[in-house]
Amino acid sequence: MSLLTYEKAKRNIFQNEEIADFVGERSNELIKLAEKTLEVTFSGSYLDFIKTFGAGNFGSQEIFGIINSDFENSSVPDAIWYTLSERKYNLPKSLIVIHECGNGQLFCLDHNELNDDRKPKVVVFMPGLALKYQPFEIVASDFGDNVVNKEIFAGN
């Protein structure tokens, strides 16, 4: 289901470009630099997303990805910058921030919590909450099945 959900969301983005605002394709070199910086390997539908769209928003839904190589001096929707910023506090190194919910929650790819296809699941992280109290609630089996993609597809 996750690949199907992602592919439908991707088609919906292409068919509704007037409400899509993405930075565009990112190079393999930039992706490798981001992976090295975060000490993770992107895979599956998230890798396809950053290769195809980079980062940006569809309507009101921001999806964090890669903007450019200046990971220290960036802003939302730069997943690398956001993740590095949150790691200064208590974000575990296994988490990559991909979406801010607006209620304080962050959706993160959890590289310690893999699905059957060895892809990171999407979990909830609450900034400012001690790690022992973090819910780490699984909200999607992987990036392709996350709530943001479902909301993007929901309109069509």
Rank of each mutant, 00 (worst) to 15 (best):
E7K: 13
A55W: 06
F22D: 00
G65P: 06
Q15N: 13
F143N: 00
C101H: 15
E86F: 14
C108A: 10
L3G: 10
P135G: 09
S60K: 14
G102M: 06
R118D: 15
N112A: 13
G104V: 07
F64H: 11
N28L: 09
F58T: 00
L131V: 12
T41Y: 10
I19F: 04
I98G: 02
V148I: 06
I138L: 03
F143W: 01
G144I: 01
E137S: 10
I67F: 10
L131C: 12
V122I: 03
S85A: 14
L109F: 05
T37S: 08
L47G: 04
V122W: 03
N156V: 13
V148Q: 00
F58R: 01
K121W: 07
G54D: 08
T5N: 11
L4I: 12
L131W: 09
N12R: 10
S60W: 13
I96K: 07
P77T: 02
T52L: 07
L30F: 06
I80S: 08
V23L: 06
R26L: 05
W81E: 01
E39A: 12
Q134D: 00
C108P: 07
K132G: 11
F107P: 04
L47C: 07
E35R: 00
D142E: 03
E137K: 12
V76L: 14
L30K: 00
E137G: 06
